[in-house]
């Protein structure tokens, strides 16, 4: 579905992304984890050409993205931004309608789809006429996800989408997203620096460090055979935390 070969991007003398390759199959979710500055966002943006690579190639459903008009390409890919990026001068409904309007959908079809999308991300229909400034962080984040899903893309790119949420909301949104992407059969690349989130949501995890993809595999593979101590420690983090939490709550042995 998504194939990335030797993707490389330089900023001045600094290698932001160096020779990254991976594949994501239909219905699969790949989580990219790594320290901040390790090149996750840059990798993601090269997939829908928000950033142009210096070297390497991206194909989606067998087609080289470099051969497509960038805006045509982007209309077929859902992108959830780290900073959400809702249009502040548009209501929730208008925000959700933007990708559909760009595809030339009719008014009635758009209205029906907007209602559907609000239900999909579990937002009250009454929010449709509100402006982003009048929403909570969690609501904004869900509108961001709904806007990315609007045109029913087969491919989703998500950049730390749930980073700004409080733990309870985060848990609920994560779960509803997990159900959603499985139901819709999305191929997704999901950037996060939260290992627990990666383990819970991902089919496979790619670990990035200093622009390189140091290891990629299922959570179990990574836990069983980490390529180095850092990866081992990284995979151990959620387990250690879970143990600690269990002990503190008195449920431990």
């Amino acid at each position: 579905m998504i194939e990335v070969h030797g993707l490389t991007r330089r900023y001045a003398e600094r290698l932001a992304v160096a020779d990254v390759s991976f594949q994501v199959g239909a219905g699969e979710l790949l989580a990219l984890v790594g320290d901040s500055g390790s090149g996750k966002t840059t990798t993601l943006k090269m997939i829908n050409r928000l950033v142009e690579p210096d070297a390497g190639r991206v194909t989606i459903e067998g087609r080289d993205v470099a051969s497509l008009d960038p805006h045509v390409l982007r209309r077929s890919i859902g992108y959830v931004f780290q900073a959400i990026g809702l249009f502040p001068h548009m209501t929730v409904a208008q925000n959700l309608a933007v990708p559909l309007g760009l595809l030339g959908w009719s008014r009635e079809r758009i209205d029906a789809r907007v209602t559907e999308l609000l239900a999909l991300v579990e937002l009250a229909p009454g929010l449709a006429t509100r402006f982003p400034a009048g929403l909570s962080g969690g609501e904004q984040q869900r509108v961001g996800v709904a806007r990315a899903l609007a045109a029913s893309p087969h491919v989703m790119l998500l950049d730390e989408p749930f980073g700004a949420l409080d733990p309870l909301t985060r848990d609920r949104v994560q779960r509803s997203f997990d159900g959603l992407r499985r139901r819709l059969g999305l191929a997704a690349v999901f950037v996060t620096h939260d290992m627990a989130e990666a383990v819970m949501l991902a089919d496979r995890i790619g670990v990035m460090r200093a622009g390189r993809l140091v290891q990629i595999g299922t959570p179990a593979e990574l836990a069983r055979a980490p390529v180095d101590d850092d990866v081992a420690r990284l995979l151990d983090t959620p387990r250690r935390q879970a143990r600690l939490v269990a002990e503190r709550l008195g449920g431990g042995t």
Binding site: L50, R74, I84, G85, F87
Partner: peptide, 15 residues
């Protein structure tokens, strides 16, 4: 203008 909003405009596929 907020760069995040402008990037979102590119991201949803606006010319």
């Amino acid at each position: 203008l907020d760069p995040a909003v402008l990037e979102a405009a590119r991201g949803v596929g606006m010319t």
